[in-house]
């Protein structure tokens, strides 16, 4: 185990009933790099991400975070490990019973016991970093547009200065301009923090913009990995079809779920 690898996944398997979703995934994410996993709907991207986050328990394999196998950790150690993580959910997943600033400063306020005044100042500072003014801090998440919710979600993900940040479909549901704004913010935030980033997306514009390296997941297996500059010249028919968004090719889209 080298210290330059933040996330290391070995032979990861996960099934739901008879459906084998992850089939022996092996993947390394180097420290400070931004890796984007691409793949179609149902390819296993979300299951992989949730397995790394501890939201789903894999059937077999290892997930090493900074060299520690998190599948063998106690619940308390696992919760402590989460302090290293920041996560931007696809739909934002903001707590709608709390105002924006309490969402952004949730971990310092609720978990670390920070003073409310300090936590609010931290929230306002973090909101500024994602292009939102202090006037947003006291609003309810329901009062925000989709793009603003994504920014608040990003602010929450980076507020406690995590060393590893996860992005789940960060641009889904946004118009192309707002998607580009979010991509820029993601890139900037990750660079400023010097963090490692792992994203999943099927938005190729987003993948190109925020990645140093790209990996493609297909039917639960990692079928290609390489620098993002090689994505147009991968030499892999599946990747080519996906990147160019062609209906014709080796990837057959299932009509029915599951």
């Amino acid at each position: 185990m080298t210290s330059s690898v933040s996330i290391s996944i070995r032979n990861l398997h996960k099934s739901f009933g008879s459906k084998h979703v992850l089939r022996g995934i092996n993947l390394d994410v180097k420290t400070n790099e931004s890796l984007v996993i691409i793949g179609g709907s149902g390819s296993g991207k979300s299951v992989l991400l949730k397995s790394i986050l501890g939201l789903i328990e894999p059937d077999q394999g290892e997930i090493l975070i900074d060299g520690q196998n998190c599948l063998e950790m106690s619940r308390a150690d696992r919760e402590n490990l989460m302090a290293k993580f920041g996560m931007l959910f696809q739909g934002g997943a903001l707590f709608d019973s709390l105002p924006v600033w309490e969402n952004v400063s949730f971990r310092p306020l609720v978990v670390e016991g920070m003073d409310r005044g300090e936590a609010k100042a931290l929230a306002v500072e973090t909101l500024n970093k994602v292009g939102l003014g202090a006037e947003v801090a006291d609003l309810s998440p329901a009062e925000l547009s989709g793009g603003m919710q994504k920014r608040v979600g990003l602010a929450r993900a980076i507020s406690s200065k995590p060393s590893i940040i996860f992005f789940d479909e960060p641009t889904t549901g946004l118009d192309p301009i707002m998607a580009d704004v979010i991509n820029d913010l993601i890139r900037k935030s990750v660079n400023d923090l010097g963090a490692t980033a792992l994203s999943i997306t099927h938005d190729m514009a987003s993948a190109r913009k925020i990645s140093d390296r790209v990996a493609m997941l297909y039917q639960g297996e990692m079928i290609w990995e390489g620098p993002s500059s090689d994505i147009n010249d991968s030499g892999n028919d599946h990747v080519d079809q996906f990147v160019h968004g062609r209906a014709e090719g080796p990837i057959a889209m299932p009509v029915l779920k599951g």
Partner: peptide, 21 residues
């Protein structure tokens, strides 16, 4: 309804990623 909505909008998952059971 409140906790169910939190479940389907991934707010329960978000709590866990914020070290909160």
């Amino acid at each position: 309804a409140e906790i169910g909505t939190m479940r389907v909008t991934e707010q329960l998952d978000a709590l866990k990623t914020l070290s909160t059971n």
